[in-house]
Design a protein around this nucleic acid. Sequence first.
DNA 1: AGGACGCCCTGTTCGC
DNA 2: TGCGAACAGGGCGTCC
Length: 260
Amino acid sequence: MPELPDVENFRRYFNATSLHQRISRVHVEEPALLFETSPQGLGRALKRRDFQSTRRHGKYLFADTGERWLVLHFGMSGSLHYSKKDAGRPKYTRLSIEFENDHQLAYTAPRKLGRIALADSPEEWIEARELGEDALDISEEQFLQKLSKRRGQVKSWLMDQHSLAGIGNIYSDEILFQTGLHPKHSLQDLDEEDRKQLYRTISSVLKTAIEKKAEPERMPDKFLLPHRKQGGHCPACGATLKSLSAAGRTAWYCPRCQAD
DNA sequence: AGGACGCCCTGTTCGC
DNA sequence: TGCGAACAGGGCGTCC
């Protein structure tokens, strides 16, 4: 599930459950998800410390130990679950962090496509991965400038984490639907008003999705999200939605409201 | 540079 | 109903 709104909710969940508690044990159940560290290295970085704060950049979550930062990426299926230790670990737990209060924070990822790492700081990580500005932090001026330097299809650009960080397949569809743009619309052909509208829609869609806990059933009626599947209908005009392939993913759009 | 692929995984959904 | 194929909200490397 994890695009920017999901990860922001994970961050808030992390804050509500896992700050300021001494870490007693660290279990790495899927070492393949570790990036440039080892179970021992992760244990050394976390044990006997506590998480003091969190940050998010795009789809990455960072937790500060006062020394190094824990970095979590959720791939396509990752999530967080805080529970009492004696309840056992949730299914698909790939990493669990146990606290001295007999609770644990489990990072689950059925599809094993996530990433667990350590960084000296969020900034160091962002720079090393060459991530773009966070989609909710970027100013309109920065946004317009970045856009003007690029060519290609609008959907691909929105999903490119090196341009803007945080937007994936689902929310790029939502943003394009609400802006009335076809997924393959050329960036160069966007006029000034389209560009400004795109910027405003990114912000409003992501903020609304965060508020709604990134849960499709909670989204406003005008959102495409709950309808984007085979046989789904446009919430604005009722037309049957169409799909196409873009940047290796399936885009859903309304052929009437988003004519090319 | 940008775009189309293939691949990494595995649970769920689709289509015959 | 049952089975294999295709697909799923991500990201990376390769090739053209």
